[in-house]
Amino acid sequence: MTSTEHDEAAPGRLTVRGLTVEFDGFRAIDGVDLMLLPGQLHFLIGPNGAGKTTLVDAVTGLVKAQGTATYEGHDLLTTKSHRIVRLGVGRTFQTATVFEELSVLQNLDIAGGVHRSAWRMILPRGAAPTYVEEALEAIGLADLRDRPAGSLAHGQKQWLEIGMLLVQDAKVMLLDEPVAGMSAEEREETGALLRRIGGERTIVVIEHDMDFVREYADWVTVMHAGKVLTAGSVAQVQADEQVQEVYLGRTADAVLHEDDTAAAAEGSEI
């Protein structure tokens, strides 16, 4: 990492230094350094319990943490969750949480609330704003706009969540296992979607599926036991002996198999 104090405030830059999260004496995250640059599809991988989700939780104000985490110079560790969102750092959760009774359009519109003043909130919805239309097109759900979100397929719900981040105009998107439980085609579409919306955004994907990582990652950070093991391109990471030992050393099959049980367990992990 070559960052100096003054460029931490650079546009779109999220910097994490010496981040530590402790739960009753157990160090779930132990001195993690991370710098996320705009325009990259950044993957965060590692075995279960490595602290990936906890790292995202810490950066988005869900758990208390020591160390520093700044976005464009703002201290994230002392900022409340909803303020972090307003700074431009958005996230999704492992289980897609959309508002099931509201339509796809209403879900996206509600996400646009960050752009509205409190007084305009008491007005009923007129036409959908253009940024809602754009997000609807981007996630490919334009034909389903009036369907209740609860009736969407699993993959479509994940896209809807990503669409809600687009509407929020999140500059940093932290996506927690967006392709878990998706079919092969859905994964491909999701990958293409992430590429499309990447642009100047910083996208961080927590993922287990190594095929997906190989296909789309610009930059991979490997975590293990609360620490960053290594970071680099897919090729660099795969060549790393330590990584092979703790994670990639096992066959891809074993890793994939672990996912199925892991996806369910990870919610309660830490």
Partner: peptide
């Protein structure tokens, strides 16, 4: 109003609303 929708949203998924800002 949009507020009314948001209120129902906060009732059903409070954490999610937090991450809508």
């Amino acid at each position: 109003s949009r507020y009314g929708e948001l209120l129902v949203a906060a009732r059903d998924a409070e954490e999610r609303v937090r991450f809508l800002g």
